[in-house]
């Protein structure tokens, strides 16, 4: 509870960015509240299974963050509908009509995964055996068999990179950054669970930018036996047995290539969270063409929205991996602290 003179911060969005920013602000002595629209905190990570690069359990990572939230008030199943600035304070009206006052805001509304139905030539929602990377995380998390029933013998799985990213056709020019490493992680996992499965990654470029990611790639090739084909999938169709026939150009061979697979995994990219635009309008946060929030200076003030007292954390400003999100959240907390210290 707030003591006299204790300044207040409200964090919008309780994914890992919001959780980390809130924990840091509470540690600095601010009266901190998270407003999360879902029934629980953890955001997207709470849906994942094992995390790259080292295979930590997503549930445990979220739990570790949650343990730091004891001094933080958490309001779930709600969102901010209205924000008014009055004498340097924000008066926030929540969905249920209740009112919160605060000295500063951290916006950490995160991302939603690309809706793969929009890439209709890949057959998501049309063919049973086409799933997304997010679906696969859920299946792995719940220990579901990946190839229920029907034909026996070795299975073939293809992972398709850049679905909904680097694609003007769906209106997303940018790279989603985490999905190359994610594909290598998931492909290796499938090989671990089904050692005689044949696993292929179809990529345009492999963006293994982290110190540990190139090692993951090498291990996927040399230890797990994952195959890599450079080329973007053109289309998928179903054969009479219900298996999938996929086509791409093997661009290093300069030849068209086709194969039949038992499962197609689409590496869906990150798009701004649904409702991010109305949050931006409400708090006057600048938004890029792609819908992600723009900071005032993407190099030196990557957490400042330009609106006094409103700070940005995590994937609401663009795709990020978990360690990048956590570092960004801490930076946002520091920026908010600097602002609040100056404020009388």
């Amino acid at each position: 509870m707030a003591t006299d003179g204790q300044k207040k911060v409200v964090v919008i969005g309780g994914g890992i960015a919001g959780m980390e920013a809130a924990a840091q602000l509470a540690r600095m002595g601010y009266d901190t509240t998270i407003v999360e629209k879902q029934a629980r905190t953890g955001g997207n990570v709470a849906n994942w299974d094992h995390l790259f690069p080292e295979g930590r359990l997503a549930g445990e990572v979220v739990q570790q963050l949650y343990q730091k939230l004891s001094p933080v008030r958490i309001i779930t199943g709600s969102s901010v509908k209205k924000a008014d600035m009055l004498e340097g304070q924000y008066i926030l009206t929540l969905a249920d009509g209740s009112v919160l006052t605060t000295d500063a805001l951290v916006v950490s509304t995160g991302f939603r995964t690309f809706d793969a139905h929009r890439k209709e030539e890949y057959g998501y929602g049309i063919y049973d055996r086409v799933i997304t990377s997010a679906d696969l995380e859920g299946m792995l998390n719940e220990h579901q068999p990946l190839f229920p029933g029907r034909h026996k013998g070795p299975r073939r799985v293809a992972f398709i990179h850049c679905v909904g990213s680097r694609d003007e056709k769906v209106g997303n020019r940018y790279c989603s950054k985490a999905c190359c490493a994610m594909a290598v992680k998931q492909a290796s996992k499938v090989k671990e669970l089904y050692p005689d499965a044949e696993v292929y990654c179809f990529y345009m470029d492999l963006r293994m930018f982290d110190r540990r990611y190139e090692q993951m790639y090498l291990d996927a090739q040399a230890k797990s036996g994952v195959n890599f084909i450079r080329g973007r999938l053109s289309e998928a169709s179903e054969d009479l047995q219900g298996r999938l026939v996929i086509k791409a150009e093997d661009t290093l061979m300069s030849k068209p290539l086709k194969m039949t697979v038992d499962m197609l995994v689409l590496m869906v990219g990150m798009e701004p969270a649904s409702g991010a635009r109305s949050v931006a309008e409400m708090l006057k946060i600048p938004v890029g063409h792609d819908g992600f929030f723009n900071a005032t200076n993407e190099l030196l003030e990557a957490n400042c929205s330009g609106t006094p007292g409103v700070f940005l954390a995590g994937t609401c400003t663009g795709p990020k991996t978990i360690p990048e999100t956590i570092a960004d959240a801490r930076a946002a907390a520091t920026a908010a602290d600097a602002y609040l210290r100056k404020k009388s």
């Binding site: 036996g225 093997d250 061979m253 030849k255 068209p256 290539l257 086709k258 194969m259 039949t260």
Partner: peptide, 18 residues
């Protein structure tokens, strides 16, 4: 056909090398 058909491609040489 100019298409590489991975369903019928002979993989014996690949297995030998691996």
């Amino acid at each position: 056909s100019n298409t590489i058909d991975m369903d019928t491609a002979p993989r014996a040489m690949e297995s030998y090398l691996l």
